[in-house]
Design a protein around this nucleic acid. Structure first.
Lengths: 349, 349
DNA sequence: CCCGCATCTGACAACGTTGTCCAGGCTCTA
DNA sequence: TAGAGCCTGGACAACGTTGTCAGATGCGGG
């Protein structure tokens, strides 16, 4: 006789896991089920007196509407998912926060998870979010094949990719101008007299990394400088390898006089190496880093606006949900060169 | 005749918002509803041949289980909520990530939101998460009254507070040793010969801030140093006010020779002020900051382990859900003094 | 005094899934 | 070959909510 047991537990109020339902509230208030629903949702057509009785019952029982059931009935969850690479990376905090603020403005909750740069985990996470029936997904891709999302998108899940483009499907994408930013950063070094310029970046398999590399090559080519072997280090992600790469460039027979670094983590490591180095070496880094202005010299960077990326993507997501959007688009946000000293050092040696 | 319409849409596959259900899969595979459920959940009792047919139907239709319905039926959502102050703050990134990893290890998703330091928003968010029927909540309190959670906790929502204690309810709390850390940091300055030491921190209404202030006072008292008016600045949160406060302390008739800063944001601003100051002033800050080792002098800090806070809290949450936990507890994690130079400067002037 | 109308209320089905339980078909043994 | 027992598959109810629709109630006017 489970019904009896449950009622007893509920009345005693001590047992975990049994929450009062609208039915319980209705029984206590002596009204119908639907009337409770009306009160909870602020629908019209309830006399003040009835409303008061219902409200009292709600408070007395500690009732809270079960949104799972609501979602099941209504179809929309008023929540969106965010799949990013690593929340602990300072670049993603503001991005995530920006997405959240837009979601909040649309009355939606944000569910997020980290892919840890693992394509399989990205897929697992994205599909788990779809199973929760999020209304939309903002994805910072780890993998390069997103066809697994096709059924979801067809089923109406709004989808926007950020920071890196979607792989093998046609979808909205919001990016920084990685190519242009890197090109301008390297050109800045060239303008200050450098010709032997190193590039240290992530694996070229990652879109942002290859675009920035392309920018480096373009700037060098525009200036008519042939790039020598040993000036480029790709795929060095962990500090140890970045350090080795930087040291090799600086110790070569004809060492580089400037370095362009492909992301914030690389930049930080290279700053450490340069700090130990005797001769001054110019540096421009992609991504801004905190306290960059307080170092001596200050660190010149190509800054992207992480918050703007997140905001733009989220706004586009909700416009998809509004139905006011049709064709997928690729949006590129400009980067900004912030000069602080390290990029303006003249060539030494 | 809505049924007909829906079926047609589904077959055409073009209209948004209609997803295939197990019923559809069953019809297509020519099996019963429950058999599909069994296949989807990997339950035993299905012949390989039937399983194959079902799987084909699933793939063909792009079916994905609706977890909302599942949750409704099963009672548990396998998701936990995290309410924090501001994801954009570098302190919370690693904390959030640590919570996520623990959740993942337990097969749960993480839903998070920022309170923006607003008690009302904290409550709104926490209750919204409860309405989604998260299994548990990790909360970094913005407010100081959490009685609104009593019905939820009684109903079985596991709850752990982090970084600051819960207000007016008895609940699990995981904190850093704010008092001890601040006391030791200030004692460190005293040990290096300082007697005129300033304190710049957040509003004393915030628990961490008042504990750190208490630590400052204790260290001074232990050393028999009376604290003068004007050595303490409380409630300065925005950079402008912090800057003014620091400048006043340094410009006073008998200026402070060292400063203890109450959190990372304050520390960063004070570093800027000190960089412009002529005489060297010692500094110890609460919270570690990135690149602190690269500044000259390096910044001595009292570091808390944000990831450990998050991990400890999340683990405790899941132990509550296991039922292996009974009485609420208060856990205090140690802080660590990291000497890098700024805290070891001798008194000047 | 009765009818019509507006207002308020509640019974019922449906959302998509899972747990329970039973039916039918099979194998194995006596 | 009949009966017992096992395995597979499916019918049905339930989870807690909301939309639909019809019934009840009260009021004013004819």
């Amino acid at each position: 006789m489970p019904e009896t047991t449950r009622r007893a537990d509920r009345l005693s109020g001590s047992r975990y896991g049994n929450r009062p339902t609208m039915k319980d509230v209705a029984a206590r208030a002596g009204v119908g089920l639907k009337t409770v629903s009306r009160v909870v949702n602020g629908e019209p057509g309830v006399t003040p007196d009835t409303e008061r009785r219902v409200q009292e019952a709600i408070d007395a029982l500690g009732f809270r509407r079960n949104d799972s059931a609501r979602v099941l009935r209504k179809g929309r969850t008023a929540s969106i998912g965010l799949v990013l690479e690593d929340l602990a990376d300072p670049f993603y905090g503001p991005l995530s926060r920006a997405v959240e603020e837009v979601a909040r403005a649309h009355g939606a909750l944000l569910i997020n998870g980290s892919s840890a740069e693992d394509p399989e985990r990205e897929q697992e996470l994205a599909l788990a979010l779809c199973a929760r029936r999020v209304d939309g997904l903002v994805i910072i891709p780890a993998g390069d094949d997103h066809r697994y999302l096709e059924p979801e998108i067809r089923a109406g899940v709004a989808t926007v990719f950020v920071d890196r483009p979607a792989g093998k499907i046609d979808a909205d994408v919001v990016l920084s101008d990685n190519f242009g930013g890197a090109r301008d950063g390297v050109a800045h070094l060239i303008a200050h007299g450098h010709r032997r310029i190193g590039f240290i970046g992530d694996m070229p398999g990652i879109h942002t990394a290859s675009e920035r590399l392309r920018g480096y090559r373009a700037a060098m080519e525009n200036a008519g400088i042939p790039v020598e072997d040993g000036w480029m280090s790709l795929g060095a992600t962990d500090p140890e390898r970045v350090r080795r790469a930087a040291e090799e460039m600086l110790a070569a027979a004809s060492p580089v006089t400037a370095v362009f670094t492909g992301n914030n983590r690389v930049t930080v490591t290279v700053i450490r190496v340069l700090a130990e180095h005797s001769r001054p070496v110019a540096l421009v880094g992609f991504d801004d880093i905190e306290l960059a202005d307080l170092l001596r010299p200050g660190v010149t960077v190509v800054a992207q606006d992480a918050a703007a990326l997140g905001r733009t993507a989220a706004e586009r997501l909700f416009r998809q949900l509004d139905g006011s959007l049709v064709a997928p688009e690729r949006i590129e946000l400009p980067t900004r060169l912030i000069t602080r000293g390290s990029g303006e050092l003249p060539p030494a040696g």
